[in-house]
């Protein structure tokens, strides 16, 4: 009798643990789900701000997450645990991703505020800020830089 009940219970616990995967929100404009818990591990998938990922488990500073059927790793500083209600949790899991509206909830300094500020202060050099934000360095170039200089990978 014990054996007959034990197997379904184990299966149930397994499915419960899956449905309990904790939802987290991507905090950065862009980021990546990587193959391994390392900064320069190959990228499996790009994610963007407000994407909701399901956390499977934590490994040091990295979370193993699932998003749109892809499983991989993302750094803890790129995500935020969303404290949402039970019903929202299940609704989110059913949808797979949440609304950007959820991410915007209660935000003060928004693109709308920046736009109004820019219109009021045309003397501010936002064009240069936009230009500086295009300065990005590829992973491969950082790796080569570190290697040539006898420096350490993170």
């Amino acid at each position: 009798m014990k054996t007959r009940l034990g197997v379904p219970l184990l299966l149930l616990c397994f499915f419960v643990s899956l449905s309990w995967a904790e939802p987290v929100m991507v905090l950065t404009k862009e980021n990546a789900i990587r193959e391994a818990p390392k900064f320069f591990a190959p990228v499996k998938m790009q994610v963007k701000y407000s994407d909701m990922l399901d956390v499977m488990n934590q490994e040091g500073d990295w979370y193993r997450v699932q998003f749109k059927g892809i499983t991989g790793y993302i750094h803890k500083t790129a995500i935020e645990k969303k404290s949402i209600s039970f019903s929202e949790t299940f609704a989110t899991q059913r949808k797979g991703t949440s609304d950007a509206e959820v991410a915007l909830a209660g935000k003060g300094f928004t693109p709308q505020v920046e736009k109004a500020y820019k219109n009021k202060h045309p003397e501010m050099k936002y064009s240069l800020v936009d230009r500086v934000e295009t300065y990005t360095i590829q992973d491969a170039d950082v790796i080569a830089f570190l290697k040539r200089g006898g420096l350490q990978e993170p």
Binding site: L27, T28, K29, E30, N31, F39, Y49, H75, T77, A78, V132, E133, Y135, T136, I137, D141, V142, F145, L146, L151, Q152, P154
Partner: peptide
């Protein structure tokens, strides 16, 4: 010079306690 300081800056930021920010690190 811009590429040089951005590469160095990114390498250092990845060793910091906050390697990712919303818009990322950019050096000029």
């Amino acid at each position: 010079l811009t590429t040089y300081i951005n590469t160095m800056g990114r390498a250092l930021a990845l060793h910091s306690q906050r390697p990712f920010t919303y818009g990322g690190y950019h050096f000029a």
